[in-house]
Structures are given as structure tokens and as C-alpha cells.
Amino acid sequence: MNKYSISEFIKQTEQVDRGEGFFELETPRMLEVNLDNFVWAKVGAMIAYNGQIKFEREGILEQGLGTLFKKAFTGEGASLMRATGKGKLYLADSGKKIIILHLQNEAIYVNGNDLLAFEPTIKHEIKLMRKVAGMMSGGLFNIRCEGTGLIAITTHYEPLTLRVTPGKPVITDPNATVAWSGNLQPEFQTDISFKTFLGRGSGESFQMRFEGDGFVIVQPYEEVYMQAQS
């Protein structure tokens, strides 16, 4: 058979059921959700589906008045949609690599831009990092996911996980920071020498400092966020 024929291409790329359950990686950059009830997903992440599925943006008041403020402040970056029904749903985000994590009565913070989907059993809460509101135009919010169930996060290229241990803090660039363990509370610091070296406009003069016992996931890429409206 001609290796460039349409039939060969279909054979090489067609969807295959692997029986992996609720979340299944069709490719390293495409997530299949075997939907039988509902799932939370990032707004705009749907690329295809079959079956009977309807999509609703998360209600602004669904989590109370505090969320109304956060959504108005952060814009669309942390917007979630609820996909309800029965069928197969395919999710992706700008070709980023997808990582599936099974939380077992655990908590993890994920940058609002890097959370792709999670099971209904996971509790979520949008957290605004007020301390940096005036410093950075992006990366101001993250989503705390807690409970038992599956979550899918995305990274540009291959992620690296750094261990944080007592007495050995880890400092990261906020725009390259994807997620961190639920028991860590990062502080923001300014590196004056960095600021002088890179120029006043550089976001790299602001860094996230993690202290305690846990982990931080970073990516080899600095996300450029939309400029916040003043």
C-alpha cells in the first residue's frame, strides 16, 4: 500500500479506544473525555465531539460574589465551561502537551491558563494573587483543585518538576510556572539587580518564591499574557 495514501493516513491517525477510562490521551496534545455525566473544561478547548453534549459557560455567580470580582478582574483566562451529556469529547489547547494527574484527596494549584479539564468530583476555586495586581498584566490568578479525581493540565513542551524542601526555597519566573502543590503559598519578590539589567518593563524582575515542603512544575517557555485593561 502506498504509505502516502489517504487510507494509510487514516489508519495511522484515526481515533482508537484504549479503554483507559474517563480521560484518555489520544495523542500527547489531545485529550479524549469519555463523557457520561459532565466535566469542567477550559472555555474554547473543545475541538470535536460525538454524541449528545451541551456546553455552558460557568455562571459568574455560581461561586458567589467573590468570583464575580475575580472574573471581572482576570478576564477570560480562568473561564471554565461545563460540558454535559453522553459521548466523546476532544479537548486541546494551542498544541500544548497534556498531563493527566489523579488527585487522591490532594490539592494542587494550577495557573489559570494551564488547566484544561477536571472531573466533577474535584472542588475548584479561582484564587486571585492580589499582591501582583499592579506588577504584572498576566498570571494574576490560579485555580485550586482539591479532592479525589482526574485533572488535565497543559504545558508548553516538556515540564520539569522541582522539589521544594525546608531551607531550600525555589524561585521561579511567574510566566513559566504551571502548577504547585496545594500546601505551598508563593510569595512574590522583586529582583532589583535583574530589573536594572533587563530594563524597567521586564516582568522577569518579579519572581515567585516557594518555601516549605512540596513541588513546583515549570515549563521551558514564558507565557505572554494579554495586557490587563486599566
Rank of each mutant, 00 (worst) to 15 (best):
Q52V: 15
T155E: 02
N183A: 14
N175Y: 07
G44I: 10
R18I: 04
A92R: 01
E8P: 13
G214I: 01
G95Q: 12
T177I: 08
L31S: 05
K88Q: 10
E187N: 11
K42A: 12
L184Q: 07
E222S: 04
V170M: 04
L116D: 00
E146M: 10
F23S: 06
A228Q: 10
F38W: 13
G149Y: 04
V110I: 12
I53F: 15
V224W: 00
T196S: 12
M129L: 11
I99A: 08
F141N: 12
L89R: 02
Y4A: 05
Q207S: 08
K127A: 08
G95K: 08
T196C: 10
F9N: 12
Q15C: 11
M136E: 06
A176N: 11
G199P: 07
P174E: 05
M208H: 01
V132N: 04
M208Y: 02
R130T: 02
E158K: 14
K123A: 07
L116W: 03
Q52R: 14
N175R: 13
S181E: 01
K86H: 08
T177F: 04
T84I: 09
F22E: 06
L35P: 00
L25F: 10
F118E: 03
F38H: 09
I60V: 13
G112Q: 07
L61V: 10
F23M: 05
L198A: 14
C145M: 13
G44L: 13
Q63R: 09
L184Y: 03
E26R: 11
G147V: 04
S202E: 13
T74E: 06
Q52N: 14
E146G: 08
E20H: 11
A41W: 13
A117H: 02
G149W: 02
M81W: 09
R29T: 15
P159R: 01
G21P: 10
I98A: 03
I99F: 05
G112N: 05
N37M: 11
L103H: 02
S193W: 07
K70I: 15
S181I: 05
M30A: 05
S94M: 09
V132C: 03
I60H: 04
F197E: 06
N142I: 00
A117Y: 01
R163E: 14
S205W: 04
S94R: 09
Q227K: 04
A179L: 10
A72L: 15
G21S: 08
S94P: 00
S205Q: 15
S7V: 04
K42Q: 13
M136W: 12
E211Q: 04
M226S: 07
F73A: 15
Q227T: 00
E158R: 14
M208W: 01
G138R: 06
N142D: 11
F22V: 08
P174K: 04
G44E: 12
Y157A: 14
V178I: 15
E56D: 10
N113H: 10
S5T: 15
L101F: 07
N34V: 14
D173E: 15
K131F: 02
N183V: 14
F141W: 00
L35F: 03
G199W: 06
K97Q: 11
A107F: 02
I126T: 09
E32R: 11
I126K: 04
E158G: 07
D114K: 13
G95T: 13
N142W: 01
A228R: 10
E146T: 13
Y109H: 12
I108F: 07
P169D: 03
T74C: 11
A45F: 05
E8R: 12
N183K: 09
G85M: 05
F9V: 09
F23R: 05
E146N: 11
